[in-house]
Each structure stands twice: as C-alpha cells, then as structure tokens.
Write a protein that binds this DNA or RNA. Structure first.
Lengths: 274, 274
DNA sequence: CGTCTGCTTGATCAGGGTCAACTCAGGTGG
DNA sequence: CCACCTGAGTTGACCCTGATCAAGCAGACG
C-alpha cells in the first residue's frame, strides 16, 4: 500500500548463517539477555518432566527476538525448525489466494510454532509477532534425534502434535455450530484460561490483537466482535476498556458456550465390537 | 501371536467393483477374510516407500471389520491404537455437551483414525462406520517402536500428524471465511480428488453420507446443502441423483473457491527474516 | 495540527437458518 | 401384493443473525 511503515528495522541486514536467525544487533544486542536456552528450559516450557535430564547441560538452543509486526516465517518458506514461544504474543495466519488473511491462532508462551511445516517441508501458515517476542529455535532434526535419547521428550512431541490437532478440531466444531455471542464468550474464556495458565490474572488481562484479528479468528467481522463485547459490557458480564478485558461473570459467559445449533439430535449408533 | 492367517487375497488385488464394498463373506465370518495385514501393506496404504522393509515379513497387524452404523470408538474411551482404513467409509464426529453432533471428517481408504487420542491417552472424537469397513489396528506403542527401526516410517508418522493438522487448519479457514456455495463446491471437489486418488472416477461418484452429515461437516444446514446442490444441478455444473454426483464443470466449481469474505485486505507486515 | 489506524455505533440488507409440507425409496408385516 | 411406516431429500415461505456500508471518535505519530 501507500504508507511508509513505522518499523525501520531493515530485514535484509543480517549476516548470520541460518535463515531463521535475525540480526542480534537489530534485535537489541541481547548478549547479556538470554540468547541461548538449555534443554531443561525447553522442557519446562513444554511441560515435560525434566527430571532425568542430565549430561546435556551444554546443549543449547538459540533464541531469536522479534519486534511487533515482524514476520517469523511465511507460507511456503522452507521448513527446518520449530519455534517455541519463550515470551511474547503472536498470530498465525493463513493467506487465501489473493490477499485475504485468516487468523488461525494466537500463540503465546509455551506454544510451538511451525508444526504445520513438517509435512511437505515448508510452512503452511504465516506467523507474525504481535509484541516483542523471544522465541527458541528448535531445529526439527535435532529435536527428533534428541527424542530418541529422551523418551519423555519424544512422547511430548507426539503429545503436542496431537494436542494441536484436538485444538483445531474443537475450533472447526465451534465455527460450524455456534453463534457470534457464544464464539466471543468462548474466546474470552479461552484467553482467560491461558493467561491464568501462565501465572497471570485470568480475570483482568490485556488482549494483544485487534478486533479485526479476533473477528478473523472467530469467523466474524470486527463490527460484530465490537458489538458483542459492548453487549457483554452493558449487561455486566465483562468490563471493556480498549483492549483491557475484565471478566466479571464467568459463569454467565460459560453458560453461553452452546448456541443456535440444532439441539438434541437423535443419535442412532450401534455399539461396535471389542 | 496367534495366527491362522489364510490370506488368499494379495494386498494389491482389489478386484471388487465399488470402493465401499468388501467381501460380504469375510465380513460375516472373519475367519476366512483378511484378518491380518503385513507391514508392507500398511506402508502401501500410508504411501511410505517400503523398499527397505525386509525381515519383517512375519510382522502382522490385526484387521477388524465394522458394519455400517457401528462405532469404532467413542469420545473419552481409552486410547491405545490407531486405525488405518483399509476399505470402507466412515465419519468422525464431535459430540458437544448434550447430544449435538458435529462431523469433523469423512475418513476413507488410507486415512488414519484416532490421532487425536495420543494426547491425553483417550479419544477426543467418535468414529462411526458409514459402510462396511475393514480397518487395520495399529497399536500406538508398537508403531512408535517400529518407527525407531524404520526412519522412513517414523518420518511418515510425523508427516501424517502434520498433514492432518494442515487439513484441519484449512477447514477452520474455510468455515471462517467462505459462503455456502463455496463450501459445497469445495466439498465436492475434495471428494472428487479423494476418489480419484483411490483410483476411482473423480467425475462420477457416490456420496456415502447424508445431507445432514454434509451440512454438519460444512457448518450448514441440510436444507442449504440440498438447495445448493440443486442449484449446481440446474446451472449444469453437476448432476445429482440422490447420493450420486457427477461433476460436469469442474472449472466452474473451482472458480467458486473464494467467496464473500472481505477481499484484498491491506497487509502491513515487516519481513522478519531472510 | 493533520493523518492514520483502531474502535464504536447506527442503519440497512441478504445469506442462510428455521419451520413446514410434500415426495420418494426402502423395509415390514398383514 | 399392497398398506403402512420411517427416514432421506427437496422445495417454499418467512425471519433473524450477522455482514455491509457509513459516520464519527479517540489515540498515536510525524
């Protein structure tokens, strides 16, 4: 488009070897910060019991920093590493033929990026930072071979893939069967749960994404999202101030979680063998 | 292992006329059907290059038969095995709190069932046979340990998980952004492609599921599905007779694949790497 | 101070959901 | 053989949710 973007940071100025690395100088010269993570740290983020890990203290994974608006990887780009979110907020989007973008997820601390690149060896979605981000680079090959030495880690990898599948499955179910209010309510509760899981308040938090992005994620327009939030605000279920959300009646929100789909379908299924 | 595998049908020789038919005798009395499959056969179904497989000729996987309407597994049921579709048609459904069922997928030959059970060790969806089915049971532990000896197999497992992820991802994208006609068109094309991939006609095929199930899968009502099909029929893009579909203008259907979402969104993204 | 982007709110409209009537095919039993 | 029933599918009429269009406001930034 016509305007000059605000981030002047020249993307092509890195001199490092691997394509996923960014210029440490551009990232803010984080040498005294955490540029490398141990396997133990990775395991903690992934919620793997790291009790048996010893002798690998020297094993390090590189960290990379991204600023808000920067793209971690694009669709079609060659895949060779996953990224584990150490801190920050992001969005993963799908770009349909000719421009329209569809938000798929809002990864945050502990989430794994790039899983969809394993198949076909190139990323199937695009990931963009919504805030300053610190990501840990996990070269896929390295991760797999590590898994062979650490069964819990290997189990966890399968777990994570399967879990992500379940999540997307639920997402598809929701998009197919729930109305706008229920979608927004679920979204708010999900966000609350994730913040709580990270140790922050699940009652009062700050959304990092625009209404437009929320709408895209939920299969709604930004206007509908805005209106629904205003609604919830008026009836006192939540309090909205810009991107700050306060959950004031969680029970009420939860009660919305199923909505205008045909309820009580007859189910006629013969129990199979075994 | 106990095996009296008579095994008169070589794996490749599907001589039956229709893809959903299996030997009725075998379905009735399992002793005379193919009760066991070799690793090679499994690899073929999964499209793994099975060139290096030798010495494992004795390794067998049990087959199980299901009749139309039977349930392969229920939500919450303990997970210990995946199922590979050898023949037949099925649906996987999500049951939301209190009965409403949401169709997630229509697995057929070569598809893997139960992936969502890896995480949490219990199935997250329910699978029901839509026709006579012949499934190969792949105990998960066994499969993983096999993967350690056969790198291509291990790669394939990761591949399949990732691929399934990409599929559900695209599904979510579609549900969030496309109109009814585009969804139905995509569905028809997808079915055509899958039939073609199995060696059957991609122009003339028979849907195994009801309008209601299609609607649930696409996030539409059965009436909308029916109307849309009638529409396509009237304008000559397809021909519909009950569940038999003939694709008469594939190009036209493909041209529908993006629909009333906001087109041409401005994209302001700073390239992070490269 | 002007512009731009994000957000809110209102007015209008249409895609598709809902309800209902009817047809058709298959199955069952007298 | 036919009467009857059931479930799938089609089609029409109506209406509601949420998309679209449009105007106005607030905060960020040059």
């Amino acid at each position: 488009m016509l305007n000059t973007h605000t981030y002047e940071n020249p993307p092509g100025s890195n001199s490092l070897s691997a394509p996923w690395q960014i210029d440490p100088v551009a990232a803010g010269r984080q040498c005294h910060g955490r540029l490398w993570s141990t396997l133990k740290e990775v395991c903690n983020l992934l919620h793997v019991p790291s009790s048996h890990l010893c002798g690998d203290e020297e094993l390090l994974f590189q960290n990379v920093q991204f600023k808000s608006g920067q793209r971690i990887h694009a669709i079609g780009q060659a895949f060779d590493a996953l990224h584990l979110v150490h801190s920050g907020f992001l969005k993963t989007v799908l770009i349909d033929e000719y421009g329209g973008e569809q938000v798929l997820h809002f990864p945050m601390k502990g989430d794994l990026l790039g899983i969809d690149g394993i198949h076909a060896r190139c990323y199937a979605s695009e990931v963009v930072a919504l805030s300053e981000c610190n990501l840990i680079v996990l070269p896929f090959k390295k991760l797999i071979s590590l898994g062979k030495d650490h069964p819990e880690l290997e189990d966890t990898i399968y777990d994570l893939l399967s879990q992500e599948l379940v999540r997307k499955q639920g997402m598809a179910g929701m998009l197919g069967s729930m109305g706008a209010e229920a979608r927004v309510a679920r979204f708010l509760l999900a966000m609350a749960g994730r913040f709580e899981g990270m140790g922050y308040s699940g009652k009062l938090f700050n959304l990092r994404m625009t209404r437009h992005e929320i709408g895209s994620y939920l299969g709604l327009t930004l206007e509908t999202v805005s209106r629904t939030l205003s609604n919830f605000n008026e009836i006192g279920w939540i309090s909205v101030y810009q991107r700050t959300i306060e959950i004031k009646d969680q029970t009420a929100l939860e009660s919305l979680r199923r909505l205008p789909s045909s309820c009580s379908r007859p189910r006629k299924v013969v129990q199979g063998s075994l």
